[in-house]
């Protein structure tokens, strides 16, 4: 594993440098711990995420990756330690971060455009339609969520997140429940929008190929600690059959599997 770290230590973030804008967030976690009862889910975690980067967090079920995302979003509070947004202590939910969940969580009683407009008030219609246009669903604006496919619902959820112009987008396995083809489409869409917009993105996933396809940096969590932190210095758009990418994926996978459960 040393090969990765040394290899990536000196690399600049070539792929994202052009898109790093002032509006994305620098995220810092300092000595963060979280317990549920006697179970320690995260232990003295330190992490700095540069603005505009796309970070993937991978790990086995129960490794604490979703908990980490919830702490970063402000949905939960750490028992010890602090989360900083741009050097300021972050405690509550705020307008800077938006979360995409594994389920689309659309309100079934609102049509698609009203779902995207949620929290924007009456004036947000134009923006909502624009965001829908971005994800290619403007023609479904008046439909009920229940008639959409799973992939379309997640695209609506993505539009709903984008409409707030988040500085930090937290993705909690939003593609986990999609079929293989829809998942690839969704990955491409997320990547394209991230490149256009330049927010800081954190993706929690159990799919390592997804992590290396999308992320600048892959963090492997194990037992509440960072077991591996590698930069993925491959040009975009990435090809799935790129040998470097496949090698990296295999290496990470091997690492995950050798961790005693």
């Amino acid at each position: 594993m040393k090969a990765f770290t040394t290899h990536f230590k000196n690399s600049s973030m070539t792929t994202t440098a052009d898109f790093t804008n002032t509006s994305s967030i620098t995220l810092k976690l300092e000595q963060v711990s979280k317990q549920f009862g006697n179970l320690t889910v995260l232990e003295n975690l330190n992490l700095v995420i540069e603005p505009g980067t796309f970070v993937a967090i991978v790990g086995k079920s129960g490794c604490g990756k979703s908990t980490l995302l919830r702490l970063i979003s402000g949905l939960d509070q750490p028992d010890q330690g602090t989360v900083f947004y741009d050097g300021k202590i972050h405690r509550k939910l705020n307008g800077h971060a938006r979360v995409m969940f594994q389920e689309a969580r659309l309100l079934p009683w609102l049509n698609v455009v009203d779902n995207v407009q949620l929290g924007l008030g009456k004036t947000g219609k134009g923006k909502a339609l624009e965001a829908l246009n971005h994800v290619g669903l403007e023609s479904r604006a008046k439909d009920w969520p229940s008639v959409l496919s799973g992939g379309q619902r997640q695209r609506v959820a993505l539009a709903r997140a984008l409409v707030h112009e988040p500085r930090l987008l937290l993705l909690d396995e939003p593609m986990g429940a999609l079929d293989a083809l829809t998942r690839i489409e969704m990955q491409q869409l997320v990547e394209r929008i991230w490149l256009e917009t330049g927010f800081t993105a954190i993706l929690v996933t159990h799919d390592i190929s997804e992590a290396v396809m999308l992320a600048d940096r892959v963090i492997l969590l194990d037992g509440g600690k960072i077991d591996l932190d590698v930069k993925v210095d491959l040009p975009r758009p990435r090809q799935r059959d790129n040998p470097n990418l496949i090698k990296l994926q295999e290496d990470i996978l091997r690492r995950v599997l050798t961790i005693p459960a």
């Binding site: 949905l75 309100l107 949620l118 929290g119």
Partner: peptide
């Protein structure tokens, strides 16, 4: 509860949580 959590993340206040999520549900 999942929709309520989503509503909180998306910045809805107490009244909006009620009128947009709890009551229609």
């Amino acid at each position: 509860p999942q929709l309520l959590e989503m509503g909180r993340v998306y910045g809805l206040n107490h009244w909006q949580l009620f009128s947009q999520i709890i009551f229609p549900g």
